[in-house]
């Protein structure tokens, strides 16, 4: 699949088919995360893959923003011990690094016909408790994955003409 097609086509999926994702596809998605760029190549991430239905149900209980019945969850965490190596900036860049990994994962999922949704609306403390996450590791994003029931219509984007500034701030494309 052409990269721009994936970028344009990916949608946040909140309703999933009741169908398991093969482990090799999940591994490919995770590997896409690992290949994301990171500040100073610190790779401050830890990814927790959850496939167990019971555990997914428990996580849903403490995640108001997690919709549908995904086949698996990937929990993206910052390892603060690693992030510290990036100095003061390390904490900020860690979140950028995680975001890049997340987008890689979601685009790869899309190319494999798998839907995903990034979710920040979950209770961090409860999630740490549920999954025995150590103190220095902070879950920052859940990506739910599964085969989409349907593709939602794309939410509006701000137009290029408004978002892009040419050469200096405030100068926009004419058309």
């Amino acid at each position: 699949m052409e990269i721009f097609e994936a970028i344009r086509g990916r949608r946040s999926i909140r309703k999933f088919e009741d169908k398991d994702i093969p482990m090799q596809d999940l591994k490919k998605i995770l590997e896409a995360g690992v290949w994301a760029p990171s500040g100073s190549n610190i790779q401050p991430w830890e990814f927790i893959l959850v496939k167990n239905k019971g555990t997914i149900e428990k996580i849903k209980l403490i995640s108001p923003g997690l919709f549908g019945n995904p086949s698996a969850l990937i929990i993206l965490c910052i390892n603060h011990e690693r992030a510290k190596r990036g100095g003061k900036l390390g904490v900020k860049t860690a979140l950028m690094d995680i975001s890049m990994a997340a987008q890689n994962m979601m685009l790869t999922a899309y190319a494999l016909g798998i839907g995903s949704c990034p979710v920040v609306s979950f209770n961090k403390l409860a999630l740490k408790e549920l999954l025995d996450v150590p103190d220095h590791v902070e879950p920052v994003l859940i990506i739910s994955v599964g085969y989409p029931k349907f593709m939602p219509k794309p939410p509006k984007r701000r137009p290029l003409k408004e978002v892009v500034h040419i050469e200096k701030f405030g100068e926009h494309f004419n058309r």
């Binding site: 149900e57 428990k58 209980l61 403490i62 108001p64 923003g65 609306s121 209770n123 409860a126």
Partner: peptide, 27 residues
């Protein structure tokens, strides 16, 4: 209790209460 609908709603309400502190107003 984990599959009890009342308990599920309870968990949703408590975690939503915490979430609403930091989330956009319309959430």
């Amino acid at each position: 209790i984990l599959t009890d609908d009342h308990f599920k709603l309870l968990a949703f309400l408590i975690t939503s209460a915490r979430g609403c502190v930091d989330e956009p107003i319309l959430y």
